[in-house]
Nucleic acid binder design. Structure first.
Lengths: 138, 138
DNA sequence: TTAAACTCTATAGTAACTATAGAGTCAAGT
DNA sequence: ACTTGACTCTATAGTTACTATAGAGTTTAA
């Protein structure tokens, strides 16, 4: 199986596969005489695993860590649990930040309408430092 | 006023100020004999404006656009309104994506506990392609 | 005068790829 | 045999908005 079929089967783009190889997440595969990468079907699993982890927004270094753990079957899996917990915390912090942003933008939006000109624009006014309707205010 | 005071007054880091200059968001200021940047107090306003926009996560190119509009006071401000609306949409999409992620991670988390070993880890199993408890499933 | 604090430019690094150029490889059709 | 098109290769640049660093010069206070 060459790289394009691997790409389709694993869900990773061709460039991503080459990138993962370069970063050491997968081992360099055999090559054809013409220097094309040649994969066996067992590689699909590893790449799909990576793809699943990426779907959860785990970083490549976290994924690398998970892959290393998989080669130590009798290790306690606390690390995995902690990683997921930490990641959940990161996501929750990001969510809270975005929600604040959303709220700021929603408050900003009705300050203007399309009938005005720039010098009367309530949005620009609110973004200006001398305004008493600041972005961070309620 | 030299750059460090400007930094304190505007809320932008020194490097960020130099970067904004390089990117054309602010004009290059006068220099002292010793080649230090010298700002007047009117520059605070522009940098604070940029800082306020960044707090809303507007991109530098969007901010540049807003700054250009400010020099055309009689232009209709529809562009500003559209930009804020578009930005709200972007934020809302990101929020929805993150919420899906959060939900996936929350479902994944209870599949394992710290007493297990890697080969019994329900989290790793769920991340593996042959699993019937896939990441994207409910 | 000298040391600390500040500033300068230029460059590399960040994360995880995508996009591109330029070259080589392979399979099918004529 | 030849050509064409699809595929693959490596290497490099680009993405975003900075931060960090090196190495050099400037200013200020003691």
């Amino acid at each position: 199986m060459k790289i394009s079929e691997m790409s389709k089967r694993s869900g990773c783009s061709i460039q991503a596969i080459r990138y993962y190889e370069k970063e050491g997440l997968i081992t360099a595969p055999a090559r054809t005489e013409g220097n094309f990468r040649l994969y066996g079907s067992e590689e699909i699993e590893r790449l799909s695993f990576i793809n699943n982890c990426r779907a959860l927004d785990l970083s490549l270094s976290e994924i690398k860590h998970l892959l290393e753990l998989q080669s130590l079957p009798s290790t306690p899996c606390e690390t995995v649990n902690v990683m997921i917990d930490d990641h959940l915390n990161v996501i929750e912090t990001r969510l809270a930040d975005l929600q604040k942003l959303q709220s700021s933008l929603r408050k900003l939006r009705p300050r203007c309408n399309s009938k005005r000109s720039i010098d009367q624009c309530g949005i620009l006014e609110a973004l200006s430092p001398n305004s008493n309707h600041s972005v961070s205010d309620g």
